[in-house]
Structure formats: structure tokens, C-alpha cells
Nucleic acid binder design. Structure first.
Length: 597
RNA sequence: GGUCCAGUAGCUCAGCUGGAUAGAGCAACAGCCUUCUAAGCUGUGGGUCCCAGGUUCGAAUCCUGGCUGGAUCACCA
């Protein structure tokens, strides 16, 4: 049932019948009728004047008449200026509703053997510090985009690439070795990632001190920054790591395990998961090997000091170093290895990297290098480049301690949800455990919705006060709508003994009901659009709109209090269907909905 | 300086494959709980859609130039 397509096809046919010309489908635009006008769909006549050779009003009228005569779904039409407003027969909307009753996933496309294979990489944390607000946006986007792509019929694999090696890891290892006296996260009752992050901070503190001392001794700033004892030690540690020194590797494994335990907890809380996890420590050597192969095959060049680089002049870019003079690999070398490994693993049609827009250049270069190395799939990499998360007072800076920690933020949101709920006295009959679960659902709903409702490409200002607001265009608003409907359905069963899976007869839907049906009707195209544009914000805005319209309906129209049993059943079924769509759409955003709140 | 992205109500954002009178939420103000959950609903005020040109029957939307802000142009990741 595709009203737009039917209308469009028929308009093309009408132009042929009426004016004896073949119309360009691109010139026939069918759009939703604006609220202030009567009708469901609007056809713009201006672009069709070349075919009709008539003024807009007459063209619209002739087409309107043709449509009404030849299409049974068209009940009426009106013409305003050059706009032809078409009304679809209410019974048609009703028919659509009947088709989707009790089907929670009517808008989802099933995948099949021919579905495109998509790999989505996101999260990609460093193992030297805990996750922060920026990671939260990354994780939510990556997870949600994956679900949206699945819903649009793609075969999706979610992967994580853990950046578990490099000098930054050695820094926290060194600080731990020097200062911790063998303490573990358990000893200090800390989450593993926070524990390791603490030593990373301690390293930087000590390093700064050492630099100051050297400067006081008469060294220049550059000399001091290079010669500070702890940095030298950390570099030595990295070399030992690359040589597979057993002691260093043991320490490395231990500290990473602590961090992973912490990450897992945060991922779990956020509801984030992966189908496969890659570790940079396992992929960087592949990248290195591939680069060396490219060197022998003549795709790459080498300087006298041993540095391996690629000349990208033919692509209008500079040269790019792929291996340092000492043979160690750089960031992009690892990504070359990972990309190749990933293609071997998945034979993807598309590989999406969910990474901040600060790395636009990096991913451009990556595709080009893979192209130059003659991988036919090099053009299948896409960078989902999202904007930065900023605070009202400016950018987050770890050095200035203005980074918002992911765990702290979640905790704070849960506290606010608890406080608000207790003030409203909503869940007084719940056990403590039950209530806590709802607080968590609400808190995460607020956080996720707040972040995902903004277009992924744009920078986002994270205002803590605003994010914790549960009114208006927020996750809890939508969740509340869901809980209200569930309450209706529960009461229908327990207090009035109504089975909402039953059937009703002889109903004429009224305008408010038609409005709700129309919004649900557009759900499949909304998913399609979100999948195409790669932004969950479209889903968030959609589900808010649906919830808002339902609240209005709920306020104006009696449902359980309706006396006509037939009408009551219809309204319950309609409401129930709205709740299914709300749950489905929120699910695409990774947001759970509570039965009560 | 080159490249890329953004600039819409006091604030946060929709709308951008050109279409009718530019929409929400927050904040402000005024109402609605003996009636299905008031985390809700209704109403009021609030706009040079950054500026200037251009294309078009029609521009917030497309093009050109400028202004402002951000990112990037590493043998950091």
C-alpha cells in the first residue's frame, strides 16, 4: 500500500491521457499536505505546466478530476493556487491500520541472501582512560545506525577496534609500576578503567614536573620535553613491548584486562554491543607487512633513513609516512591492516567508520592508499563523520579537567530520574529493585534521546541541566506516552475484561485518528530516510512527533470511558498500535520503554 | 594560507533531493487535575532563516562572493 507511488504513477498516466506527452517522473512531486490545508497529499502543478500548456490552477484542476475519476482511493481534491491537494478515502487509511495491527515491525525490511553486507565500526577506545561524553555519542550513533540499517534490510556486523598499544598505554603502565606498589582496582575499590586512567593522569603530572625541573636546570623547553626521565622510560617500555618482553607484556595484559572489565560495565549500562572486536595489537603487524609488500612491489617509496612513505601527489595530496625510520608503524598503518583483515572476514559491500569529523582527512587518505594498493573495495569505505560534543562553556579538554566522564554522567542521570520520580510519587508501590530499573530506563532514555535527536553531522552542545530535563522534546516524554498507553491496555484487560486482540466493526475513523494512522503510515519511509542519510535524529524526531500527537489524542478523546464498546475497542487497538511503533522506533535508538513510570 | 563542515526565535534544535503563511522543545506569561498517569494538554508573545548578489513562476533550501565559528593540513592516535 503505497499511496504516494500510486498517485505519482497515475499523474504520469493522466498527463499522457490528457496532454499526450510522456512526463518526466522527476517533475512529478507528491508531498504531504501542509497542516493548514485540507488533504493528505499535495501534487505541485507548477512543474507540469510544460506538459499541460495551461495555467497552474487549470492544470491542477484537470489532474485532480482525473485522479478522482480513475483512482478509488481518492475521495476528494481541492486546488489552491498551483497546489493540488488530494484527500485519500478514510476507509483506505483504516484499511492500512488493519493491516499493521499487532505487527510491531511492519516497517522493517527483512534481510535475504542478496542483502548488502555492511560493517559498522564504532567506539574504538584507547585503553589508557575511561570513556567520556564523546565516546557516548560515538557509541550511541554507531549502535543506532547499525540497528537502522538492519531495519532497512541490510546485513550488519558491528565491530569495535580497540586501540590497545602505543606510547599512551605505556605511560599509564609506567606510572602504575612506579607508584602503585602493586595495588589493583579491587584494592582501591575502583572500576578498572578509572583505575588505569588515574595512573595516566599521574604520569602526566609527574612528567610535567620533570620537564619543569629540567628547564630550571637550564634546558630548553624542547630538550626538557624530550629528555624527561619518565618519557624516556615510557619509550623504552614501548620498544620492550614491541620486542615481546615477557614482563612488559604481562603488565600490559594485566592493565588492559582491568580496563576491559571497566569498559564492559559501561557498554552494558549503555546497552552497546559488538559482533566482533579487533585489537590494534593484533592488526598493526598485518598493516606493517602489507606496507613492506607494497614497497617491494614498487607502490611505495623509501627514504635513505629507512622511512617508508606513499606519494599521493596524483591525488592532489602530499606524501604520507607509513613506517618510521626505526620500522615502527604509525596510526594509519594499523588501519590499513585492519581494513584488509576486515574485508577478508566479511567481504563487505560497505564498511562504515563511525569516527569524529576531526579525522576526515585521515579517512580520505586511508581510502586513497587502499586504492593505490589496488584493493577494488577501497571505495566501499565510508566515514560517518560526526560532530564534536561541546559544553556550554566550550570544548571538553582533558588537561583542564572539563571532560565529562561517561560513568559519572549516567550515575547523575539516574539520580535525577530517581529524585523526579519520587517527587511525583509515581512508583510508590514498586519494590526498590523494580523502581531502580525504571529509573535507569528513564535516565538512559533521556541521555540517549538528547544526544541522538541532533543530526549526527552537527556539533552538539551538551548542556547538563537541559539533558536532565524530562519534559518536552525528550526521551522520557516519549517513554511516558508509551507507559500511558500500556496503562490503558492493562486496565482494559483487568477492569473491563476487554480482549484487544478481538475485532470491531462498522467504524468511521475521525480526523484525529486519521492523523495518527498517517504518522504510522510514514514510519517505513522514515526508516528508509534515516538509513540513507545515516542519522538516527530522523527517527528521534519522528517518534517525538508521534508521541506528541498521541498525547493530544489522549487528552481530547475518551478511550476507556467511551461508552460504545465497538468504538472503545477500536481506540484501544489504535492506541496499542501507537505504542508498538513507539517501542519499535525507540528500539532503533537503543532506548528501552517502561510499562509504567 | 589551502581544504572540509556549520551559521534558522533569548537558548537547544527540526525543516535543506527548490514549493503554500519558516516549525518544535526549553525559558517567559495566562489557563486546564473529584474524569483513562499533569513526566501531560491548551493558549500568548518571540524571526533581516549571517550578509550581498545570481538562477527560478517560486530560495531558509541551489550557485558565486564575503563575514563569523569549528575541524584539519604530524614520523600523535
Amino acid at each position: 500500500m503505497d499511496f504516494e507511488k500510486t498517485l505519482k504513477d497515475t499523474v504520469i498516466k493522466a498527463i499522457k491521457d490528457l496532454y499526450s506527452v510522456e512526463a518526466d517522473p522527476a517533475k512529478v512531486t507528491v508531498q504531504k499536505t501542509r497542516k493548514d490545508f485540507v488533504g493528505d497529499f499535495t501534487i505541485v502543478a507548477f512543474s507540469l505546466l510544460a506538459y499541460s500548456k495551461k495555467v497552474p490552477v487549470d492544470t491542477a484542476k484537470e489532474l485532480g478530476e482525473y485522479l478522482q475519476e480513475n483512482l478509488s482511493i481518492v475521495s476528494d481534491y481541492n486546488v489552491v493556487n498551483g497546489f493540488l491537494n488530494i484527500s485519500i478515502d478514510k476507509e483506505q487509511w483504516h484499511k492500512f491500520l488493519k493491516q499493521i495491527f499487532d505487527n510491531a515491525n511492519f516497517a522493517f525490511k527483512a534481510k535475504n541472501d542478496k542483502s548488502p553486507k555492511v560493517v559498522v565500526e564504532y567506539s574504538s577506545p584507547n585503553t589508557n582512560k575511561p570513556l567520556h561524553l564523546g565516546h557516548i555519542r560515538n557509541n550511541l550513533l554507531g549502535w543506532s545506525i547499525s540497528e537502522i540499517l538492519k531495519a532497512s534490510g541490510k546485513e550488519v556486523n558491528k565491530v569495535n577496534l580497540v586501540n590497545d598499544r602505543g606510547i599512551h598505554i605505556c605511560k599509564s603502565m609506567l606510572a602504575w609500576k612506579e607508584l602503585a606498589e602493586g595495588k589493583t582496582p579491587e584494592d582501591e575499590n575502583m572500576k578498572g578503567d578509572h583505575f588505569v586512567g588515574k595512573y595516566y593522569v599521574l604520569f602526566n603530572d609527574e612528567y610535567k614536573k620533570q620537564v619543569q625541573e629540567l628547564i630550571a636546570e637550564g634546558k630548553t623547553k624542547e630538550e626538557a620535553e624530550k629528555e624527561a626521565p619518565w618519557l624516556v622510560k615510557a619509550q623504552k617500555m614501548l620498544r620492550s613491548w614491541e620486542r615481546n618482553s615477557r614482563k612488559i607484556r604481562q603488565l600490559w595484559t594485566q592493565m588492559n584486562e582491568w580496563v576491559y572489565a571497566g569498559f564492559d560495565e559501561t557498554y552494558k549500562k549503555l546497552g552497546i554491543d559488538f559482533d566482533k572486536t579487533y585489537y590494534e595489537s593484533e592488526t598493526y603487524l598485518d598493516g606493517k607487512r602489507r606496507v613492506l609488500k607494497g614497497l617491494t612491489e614498487g607502490d611505495l617509496s623509501q627514504r635513505d633513513d629507512g622511512t617508508v612513505l606513499i606519494d599521493l601527489e596524483e591525488y592532489g595530496m602530499d606524501e604520507k609516512v607509513l613506517l618510521r625510520a626505526d620500522g615502527t608503524s604509525v596510526y594509519i598503518t594499523q588501519d590499513i591492516g585492519t581494513a584488509i583483515m576486515r574485508y577478508d572476514d566479511f567481504k563487505f559491500d560497505e564498511s562504515i567508520y563511525v569516527v569524529g569529523n576531526e579525522q576526515d582527512y585521515h579517512f580520505k587518505v586511508l581510502s586513497i592508499i587502499l586504492d593505490k594498493l589496488e584493493y577494488p573495495w577501497s571505495n566501499r569505505l565510508t566515514h560517518l563523520s560526526y560532530g564534536m560534543v561541546e559544553l556550554p562553556e566550550g570544548k571538553m579538554k582533558s588537561r583542564e579537567g572539563t571532560v565529562v566522564d561517561a560513568d559519572d554522567l549516567i550515575e547523575e542521570m539516574i539520580n535525577t530520574a530517581r529524585k523526579t520520580s519520587e517527587e511525583l510519587g509515581k512508583l510508590s508501590d514498586f519494590t526498590k529493585e523494580e523502581a531502580e530499573k525504571v529509573y535507569e530506563i528513564i535516565a538512559l532514555g533521556a541521555l540517549k534521546f538528547y544526544i541522538l535527536k541532533v543530526d549526527a553531522r552537527k556539533n552538539i552542545t551538551f548542556n547538563p541541566q537541559e539533558s536532565i530535563d524530562f519534559n518536552g522534546n525528550t526521551g522520557p516524554f516519549v517513554q511516558y506516552t508509551y507507559a500511558r498507553i500500556r496503562s490503558l491496555v492493562r486496565k482494559a484487560g483487568t477492569e473491563q475484561n476487554i480482549d484487544i486482540s478481538g475485532n470491531y466493526e462498522d467504524i468511521t475513523v475521525d480526523d484525529k485518528e486519521k492523523e495518527l494512522i498517517k504518522i504510522m503510515y510514514s514510519y517505513p519511509s522514515v526508516i528508509e530516510e534515516a538509513a540513507k542519510l545515516r542519522t538516527p535524529s530522523i527517527i528521534a524526531n519522528y517518534v517525538f512527533d508521534l508521541a506528541k500527537n498521541f498525547n493530544k489524542y489522549y487528552h481530547e478523546i475518551p478511550i476507556l470511558k467511551e461508552e460504545d464498546k465497538n468504538i472503545k475497542l477500536f481506540r484501544l487497538k489504535l492506541s496499542n498500535q501507537v505504542s508498538l511503533v513507539v517501542k519499535s522506533a525507540m528500539g532503533l535508538l537503543g532506548i528501552d520503554v517502561p510499562e509504567r513510570m
